[in-house]
Design a protein around this nucleic acid. Structure first.
Lengths: 267, 267
DNA sequence: CACTGTGAACGTTTTCACAGCA
DNA sequence: TGCTGTGAAAACGTTCACAGTG
């Protein structure tokens, strides 16, 4: 999952559950595809399949938005596209700044999926003076010094952080001070932000680690017993006090420099 | 959240909850940072703060792994690093292939966070013959024709898909046929895979859409009433049958070509 | 009749609060 | 005393199953 919120505990008013909100973009994607193929209506069953969920869940989700379907028929594709877009706030366009134009930042700048939804890359910002002025995805990179001015002048409220981990909190603080209230963080760090600022994070290596966990499980099962993989390692029995110093493999491939830092490339 | 599983409904045996598994990498990252600063022990409170969760959750999570702490003291950093690494399967190294070497694929290939955990980029694969042989991040790109051979020869079980959406399912099928059992999907499509294959997805534009939703909420609240933003749009009252054709703004910025497809660049 | 919309059952995750131990 | 480990409660999310309706 890749999800770090910062939210008032109980959302007041006609609250749509977080889990539902997180699936709306999925439905929207599936609906957009249907719309392009000029399909006029879908059943919850069909749409659910296209979105990779089950139909009960989809219907429950839609029930939070209102009654947009027709019993016996299904949902009108165009109408639903519109309703979901509106609910997600995609009927307006959102200027976005990307900070940290390394490999990842550049990839994000070039990513077509942003523009096709309501997002517009308003500026690219990097700390490296040598990058200043260089165009990436047709947009000239600007220096970090300009950060506050860029945000104010363009009325930007969403920022993307693609810097190395070491720079992320500092960049975050400046973004927030400049008026940003939503942050998408690609740097492998926990950002601390004041109340009222939303942070979502995407951590590439975390996703792989979760896969590795399940992969390991599978490997274990193949052998037969769901037992600890035989010949693994002697886990220090009770008191772990001084145990670690000798824990075999504990330090194996864990090279010191590099550790957590690199987001992709020093920005 | 970026999360698409394919799992046996109820995990048998000493099952660690999915939610806990998803947080282990977070704890590991925080612990690794402490380890590098030679901090010997942490309390659940400190570690929780560093990982961005609350301490009750962290202690519950750890309780699924076993009793690795010392009451009145806390957790031994090195020992916990080892235990969590082992639980996640990071004490072995995992060869990984990346398919689709566009901007994003290249960024992933260069990403330091993979190597620093147990992951090794075993091969880069792209459909473009012109890319074949070109080194990216020091690794020569190989042509898709070699896909099956690469996977078999290297015993790869984890694949990363960074192709455009249109190619993703096809690539996925070949990966699975070749023996891959875990996939990290960056293409904005739902992949269908047989049982026993895990898929996790990361969709950059979905994350932004979720932020936009909350951002819109904030904007609405500022004005005062948690009511529908005034002067929004006339939602067709009851029967939505023919409504969409005229739904204002429904087709606003939604340019036809581009729609869902571009993962970043035609691989 | 085929479908949506939804209460109610169920399962999972989070949080609370405290007993138990070093 | 200061912490962990954990039952029990509460919150949240999913699934079931069917009543309601175009």
């Amino acid at each position: 999952m890749a999800t770090g919120r910062t939210h008032r505990p109980a959302t007041r008013s006609r609250g749509i559950p977080e889990a539902t909100v997180a699936r709306l973009p999925l439905y929207l994607r599936a609906l957009t595809a249907l719309s392009e193929r000029s399909v006029p209506t879908v059943s919850s069953e069909e749409l659910a399949t296209a979105a990779g969920v089950n139909s009960a869940k989809l219907r429950k989700d839609f029930s939070y938005l209102g009654s947009y379907g027709t019993r016996g028929v299904g949902y009108d594709v165009e109408y639903l596209v519109y309703q979901i877009s509106r609910e997600l706030g995609l009927t307006q366009d959102w200027p976005v700044v990307i900070v940290g134009i390394g490999n990842l930042g550049a990839a994000l700048a070039n990513y077509g999926g942003f523009a096709s939804r309501g997002f517009r890359v308003a500026a690219l910002i990097d700390a490296d003076p040598a990058m200043a002025g260089k165009p990436v995805a047709g947009i000239p990179v600007q220096h970090t010094d300009e950060l506050e001015k860029i945000i104010t002048d363009n009325g930007v409220s969403i920022g993307v952080i693609a810097t190395p981990a070491g720079a992320a909190q500092q960049v975050c603080d400046r973004l927030v001070a400049a008026g940003i209230t939503s942050i998408l963080n690609f740097a492998p760090t926990v950002l601390s932000v004041p109340d009222g600022v939303d942070v979502r994070k995407v951590d590439l290596s975390i996703e792989l680690q979760i896969l590795a966990f399940h992969e390991q499980r599978k490997a274990g099962e193949e052998v037969g017993a769901p037992e600890e993989v035989a010949g693994a390692v002697p886990p220090p029995p009770v008191a772990p006090h001084r145990a670690p110093s000798g824990a075999p493999g504990a330090d194996s491939g864990r090279q010191g420099p590099d550790g957590d830092v690199p987001a992709v490339m020093p920005a």
